[in-house]
């Protein structure tokens, strides 16, 4: 069951304040990294919602992100919609696609679920790659950024864009957290633990799973819109399964089923990648060793480790107190 422990709230508040403070002082490249982190953070929150709480390890979230990015670009550039309606359309399309995938894969569990989502993700990838409408391998350029000059914000400025991206992360978090606290969220967690029981209680299992997957897909589509607005260029690589695999790694690295943990994971992953790749072209190996080390420590990711330590420390005094009382 999802709860906001004091640790989680403190972490979130610290991250939000830290990110905003950094956005005001960072140089150009720092702002680029901040936007990159924000996009990954939205994607991994979306993934944690279904993977961490519903046990649905998806390998198609990269594709859902990519569908959002392409839908946004095509709607805003070729169909001439302005940016916000185009975003709504893109998010809705990703959600609809995710609903279908979630419904079809609802009966599969474990590795079979992973592979089924992989299959759908790869189909979307091939479709985009081969369709001349989407520019094929060369991708599409010219995705616009929303025009907020009416309220005095110029999103072509990197600093304003980074703050806008942070705001979208916050929005994503709120959607995910309120989903988890709703009846649907409780059903999702219940399904993960005991599907038979909930089925007996009269829950339409496939519909609950598909709805949760659709919400997650909508958020992934939002990440796609943001990615398209950030780089203003998109390519089929966005839909590749390796993007989904990387997102899954980030979720687990941060702490599965904690929502806050994956955000921490996203920060760690992007920063590590940039720091290490500046030193050596063999940065994958270093990141790989870090991943292995995290697992060997037997913690639920970095954030899970901190949570466990805090819980142990909190339990100790009460235990001692209980002893003293006895």
């Amino acid at each position: 069951m999802f709860t906001h422990t004091p640790l989680r709230l403190t972490t979130l508040a610290t991250l939000a304040i830290g990110a905003l403070a950094y956005a005001f002082v960072a140089g150009f490249f720092g702002l680029e990294i901040l936007a990159e982190i924000a996009i990954l953070a939205i994607l991994v929150i979306a993934l944690d919602l279904v993977a961490g709480f519903g046990g649905m390890l998806s390998l198609c979230h990269g594709a859902l992100l990519g569908v959002g990015a392409y839908a946004f670009t095509v709607a805003a550039k070729d169909a001439g919609l302005s940016a916000f309606p185009a975003m709504v359309l893109a998010v809705a399309l990703s959600a609809a696609l995710a609903f279908v995938i979630g419904a079809v894969c609802a009966r599969s569990i474990g590795i079979y679920f992973i592979m089924a989502t992989l299959a759908f993700g790869q189909m979307a990838y091939s479709f985009v790659f081969q369709s001349p409408l989407f520019g094929g391998d060369d991708g599409l350029s010219g995705a616009p950024r929303p025009d907020l000059t009416a309220i005095g914000i110029d999103l072509t400025d990197s600093r304003a864009f980074a703050i806008y991206a942070i705001a979208l992360v916050a929005l994503t978090y709120l959607v995910a957290a309120s989903t988890l606290r709703s009846g649907l969220g409780r059903s999702l967690v219940g399904l993960h633990h005991n599907e038979k029981r909930l089925r007996a209680l009269g829950l339409t299992v496939w519909r609950a799973k598909a709805t949760a997957f659709a919400i997650s897909g909508a958020l992934a589509g939002l990440a796609g819109c943001l990615a398209a607005q950030h780089t203003q260029y998109i390519s089929p690589g966005l839909l590749s399964w390796t993007v989904s695999g990387e997102a899954l790694v980030v979720v687990i690295l941060g702490g599965l089923g904690t929502l806050a943990g994956p955000i921490v994971g996203a920060i760690l992953f992007v920063v590590l990648k940039h720091e290490i790749s500046a030193i050596t072209p063999y940065w994958h190996a270093i990141v790989g060793l870090i991943l292995i080390a995290v697992v060997m420590s037997r913690a639920n990711g970095v954030f899970g480790y901190v949570e466990a330590r805090m819980a142990a420390r909190a339990a100790k005094p009460t235990l001692e107190k209980a002893k003293a009382d006895a």
Binding site: F28, F29, G139, A227, T231, Y233
Partner: peptide, 20 residues
């Protein structure tokens, strides 16, 4: 700068080279 043969990475690195 290393593009990693990934268009978004190449773009980020280009912006870094130009602006920073």
């Amino acid at each position: 700068e290393d593009t990693e043969v990934k268009p978004p990475v190449g773009l980020a690195k280009t912006k870094k080279l130009i602006l920073q």
